[in-house]
């Protein structure tokens, strides 16, 4: 991925080496090496294939979430959209619909969910945190309304196979292949197109972006719709991968997604980040989860670890920035404004 972070005033090679996303990449290598030496099954192709597949939905949603966070927005409702999508798949399959009809319908519902998020944020000017915490409850609630606490299983094998099997001749599962393709597209969009440029401008200085003729509201609306569509499609994959449709599928997944994005060096205040960093962040979380699982650490501890990672990944960059700031200008109490 093209290195594209706007470095601060210092520049230089040391600064570049100390970039957050590079550090995460290095950490990733260490964890991988540690895993190889620490656990005999870890290096096993089957295990790696499983670990990648297990990451599929998080990785897919993280792509869309990266775009949102770069534009200084966030969507907490993605896991609920995933759950709603899963519940719809279950309910409609139970009612005798064909999977070929269900999938497009679910994606359309996803788009509607995103539209609601996006319109509330762009038309009413509400903070996306507040809106998506509301829709997080709303969409999860609707998932329960659709499917109750039932679990629907027995999906046709050709679809469940697609969600689990590897692409012939490789150890890469189909959903991961989809992720690779989408990641390439997202990388180009974010780092090489005018749309991507606009996202960084919006995130860094929304007013300047507006003054430069960038259609801020329209772009944000698109991002929310994309995020929900991806989440809805991830819900389909999730359902087939586990072979079970439930309303509470993927609950808590939003945290892993946001942790991966922030861990990858995307600034929560927007305007900074690289897709390469996010991919490293996703893989890091995936490998850690896998290692914990291989070492028979309970899922509870895994939840603690992911939660801690989220807190650490949001707090460390700020501490680093604060220390650096203090070292440079010991007396500065506010933003420097050298104007008359």
């Amino acid at each position: 991925m093209a290195p594209d972070v706007t470095t601060g005033a210092l520049g230089g090679s040391l600064q570049r080496f100390l970039r957050w996303d590079v550090l995460v990449g290095v950490l990733l290598v260490f964890v991988f090496a540690g895993g190889l030496t620490g656990s005999p099954q870890f290096g096993n192709i089957d295990n790696l294939s499983f670990a990648l597949g297990d990451l599929g939905e998080i990785a897919l949603i993280a792509l869309a979430m990266t775009l949102l966070v770069v534009a200084a927005e966030v969507d907490l409702s993605v896991a609920s959209v995933l759950g709603l999508s899963s519940a719809l798949v279950g309910n409609l399959w139970d009612a005798g619909w064909a999977i070929e009809t269900i999938i497009p319908l679910v994606v359309v519902v996803g788009a509607l969910c995103g539209l609601v998020n996006g319109l509330l944020v762009t038309r009413l000017g509400l903070p996306s945190l507040a809106v998506t915490i509301g829709t997080m409850a709303l969409y999860r609630g609707l998932a329960y309304v659709v499917l109750g606490d039932r679990a629907v299983a027995g999906f046709p094998q050709q679809f469940t196979d697609l969600a689990v099997n590897d692409v012939p001749g490789t150890f890469i599962p189909y959903p991961v292949m989809l992720f690779v393709a989408l990641a390439a597209v997202t990388g180009v969009v974010l780092h090489a197109t005018g749309f991507g440029r606009s996202l960084f401008a919006i995130g860094a200085q929304v007013e300047a972006a507006h003054f430069a003729g960038i259609r801020v509201k329209r772009i944000k609306l698109i991002l929310f719709v994309v995020a929900s569509v991806v989440a809805a499609f991830a819900g389909v994959i999730y359902t087939f991968r586990y072979g079970s449709a439930r309303a509470d599928n993927g609950s808590g997944l939003e945290m892993a997604v946001i942790a991966a994005v922030l861990l990858g060096g995307v600034d929560f205040d927007g305007g900074k980040g690289t897709l390469g960093g996010v991919i490293a962040g996703v893989l890091l979380i995936g490998l850690l989860r896998n290692l914990l699982m291989l070492n028979d650490v309970s899922t509870e501890i895994q939840s603690i670890v992911t939660g801690l990672l989220l807190v650490i990944s949001v707090i460390t960059p700020r501490l680093v920035a604060a220390v650096r700031q203090r070292r440079r200008t010991p007396t500065l109490t506010t933003q420097p404004t050298p104007e008359g």
Partner: peptide
């Protein structure tokens, strides 16, 4: 605050 307390929620 929202991100921090989302993290501590799960911890």
């Amino acid at each position: 605050a929202l991100v921090v307390t989302l993290g501590t929620l799960y911890v």
